[in-house]
């Protein structure tokens, strides 16, 4: 095989509770092909590792399940181009199950019942754009990377228990509900209480150092964290941060 017919990638698999490194030569289908990470995984399964475990759904950056780490940074496998020498591994922020598959549901479980509130009756009320900005979230969990709160959870154990501490995604869910024009004022307190119980205060302390990045480009600090902190702890945070 000529060197320019393939690109070599390092795959970090997870098997028998251990990391296992495999070099995979991706055979290019076109001279100038720059494959996505997902193409590499699909071809590796077809050609060499037929029991390779990884997630994908839509192949079009919509379903949010294919997140993996490329060179230790979270990316959507279906839309992350890879090059010679890149490393692909499971995302580091959730418990590993097998190869690239991680356990995801500790996060949804921590939100169980968060929205069990009564809403207003008149449904014909318009939500503004800040509300809709938040529903563009695809639940890819790229934002767990760099989250000081999520880190505090026990990320080794595999069970069906909810996580104790929150993360940008769970706060996004709360903020969306808060912004919903149909959520009655008195229920908003419950939402803020929930945010506090998930450890919102840590964000207050770490706000200036907070480096979280959304996989689809939502401005999480300005559109989720800041407004929540403001209602929960008053104006002084904003001033302090200036």
């Amino acid at each position: 095989m000529e060197k320019d017919e393939f690109i070599t990638l390092k795959l970090e698999l997870f098997r028998d509770n251990k990391k296992k490194y495999v070099e995979y030569n991706y055979i290019k289908r076109d001279f100038d092909e720059r494959p996505m990470a997902l193409d590499v995984l699909l071809q590796a399964q077809e050609n060499e590792i037929d029991d390779l475990a990884f997630r994908y759904g839509c192949r079009a950056r919509n379903c949010g399940v294919c997140t993996i780490d490329v060179n230790d940074k979270p990316r959507l496998a279906c839309r992350a181009r890879v090059k010679d020498g890149d490393k692909i591994s499971p995302i580091a922020t959730l418990p590993k199950i097998k190869d690239f598959v991680v356990k995801r549901d500790g996060i949804s479980r921590q939100m169980q019942g968060y929205n069990n509130i009564s809403i207003k009756n008149n449904l014909n009320v318009e939500a503004d754009h800040s509300y809709h900005n938040l529903t563009s979230c695809i639940e890819c969990y790229a934002c767990l990377d760099g989250c000081p709160l999520h880190k505090k959870n026990n990320l080794e154990e595999i069970n069906n228990n909810p996580y104790t501490y929150g993360n940008p995604f769970s706060f996004l869910k709360l903020q969306r509900l808060y912004l919903d024009p149909l959520t009655p004022e008195k229920e908003k307190e419950t939402i803020i209480e929930k945010a506090k119980s998930l450890g919102l205060e840590t964000y207050k302390k770490e706000y200036n150092n907070l480096k979280i990045k959304c996989g689809v480009g939502i401005n999480l600090k300005d559109e989720v964290i800041k407004p929540l902190l403001k209602v929960a702890f008053g104006d002084q945070i904003e001033k302090k941060n200036k």
């Binding site: 997630r55 839509c58 079009a60 379903c63 639940e139």
Partner: peptide
């Protein structure tokens, strides 16, 4: 699939 990841979502 993970909860809610479906044709409906995409």
């Amino acid at each position: 699939d993970p909860m809610s990841s479906s044709d409906t979502k995409i």
